[in-house]
Design a protein around this nucleic acid. Structure first.
Lengths: 183, 183
DNA sequence: AGGAATATTTACAGATCAGTCAACGTAAGG
DNA sequence: CCTTACGTTGACTGATCTGTAAATATTCCT
């Protein structure tokens, strides 16, 4: 299996895990939907957990790249980008196949703090906070890290309610709150 | 199995599902930890999903009772109670065995909008909004429902980050935001 | 006490789970 | 053509999954 094939497998597994959940998805299904045998998968990933970790690494890169670029496209100033995050989120909530945040779900299914999947899920959120804090610092706010954490809470709350209600409205509701924090 | 026994079974199943997750927990484990046979469980609940729905009904009652009473104990005015919600949340986050919100997790594991578990999970959040809106109305706010939705987003965001980070700090971070909305 | 109705149990079915193994196909180098 | 090395496969293991059937305890009414 070439590097391309391997990446394609991870990408395929991502789609299936995101749609079906982690524990609810068997490796047989991943193999079938990816057009390879289960044994081939286990040649590259020693366990299902390792495949999940690879999936989460891909998702982390993809999501941060998408979100940060979208924020840059939508606004020029650092403060404007922080506010524009919620417009980007609304686009995501409205997109076909939106099913909430993969890291929240991974953390919920693998709750043990010593589990690598649990730790890696929260690490994604920390990377988001880092970026928000950089922008908040550049925008001249007094306590950029505290503001970044507040924006993270708004973002995660909006994602959870949008996913549970199958309705993108929380994006703009969270934006209204963020506007007061950033104003 | 008496009504008491049945309730005790549901309560037991709640603990196990909350600790282990829904899909990851087998009915054999529920039976063993509850001290009854699996067949006895299936005499009262036709499927595992029905048991989960009963668990969620119990959790909905327990959690709303606890939260609303705690809010009343901590503050006298409606606006004060809305703010005090975040103090109550902090107590919850600090409690032993805190593992996030059961309804968020249920919704994440049963994502199909036509699934009764999915619908019932969001129904719990709607009941919370109803209560917040009543308090916001009593406090004299202009758009009580909109404010209630914003508080819900703050609450869910705090829960998710507290659970993922294994740290109760998001309670006070969310409270700081709420103070601005309520001030 | 005796028999009917109700609980509860053990044992099992059939499917699916994560993960493995021996056999097979295939491509490169001589 | 032959061998070596390697990627891939179908078939399998033992465990676990949800749910059930037949048999056994227990309760309750007469």
């Amino acid at each position: 299996m070439s590097r391309n094939k391997r990446d394609e497998l991870i990408r395929n597994a991502l789609k299936i895990f995101y749609r079906n959940g982690f524990n609810a998805t068997g490796m047989d299904l991943v193999a079938k939907e990816s057009g390879v045998s289960k044994t081939s998968i286990y040649k590259h990933f020693r366990t299902k957990d390792e495949l999940i970790l690879a999936v989460l690494r891909l998702r982390d890169e993809d999501f941060r790249n998408w979100l940060f670029r979208r924020m840059e496209d939508l606004a020029d100033t650092p403060a404007g980008q922080l506010l524009a995050m919620f417009d980007a989120l609304e686009e995501w909530f409205e997109a076909d196949g939106f099913q909430g945040c993969m890291f929240i779900k991974a953390s919920a299914e693998f709750q043990n703090p010593s589990d690598a999947i649990n730790r890696q899920s929260y690490a994604h959120k920390e990377l988001l906070v880092d970026h928000f804090a950089r922008l908040a610092g550049a925008a001249g706010f007094d306590a950029p890290r505290a503001l970044a954490r507040e924006l993270l809470i708004l973002k995660e709350g909006a994602i959870v309610i949008a996913a549970m209600s199958h309705d993108p409205a929380p994006a703009m509701e969270a934006k209204a709150i963020a506007a007061r924090l950033l104003g």
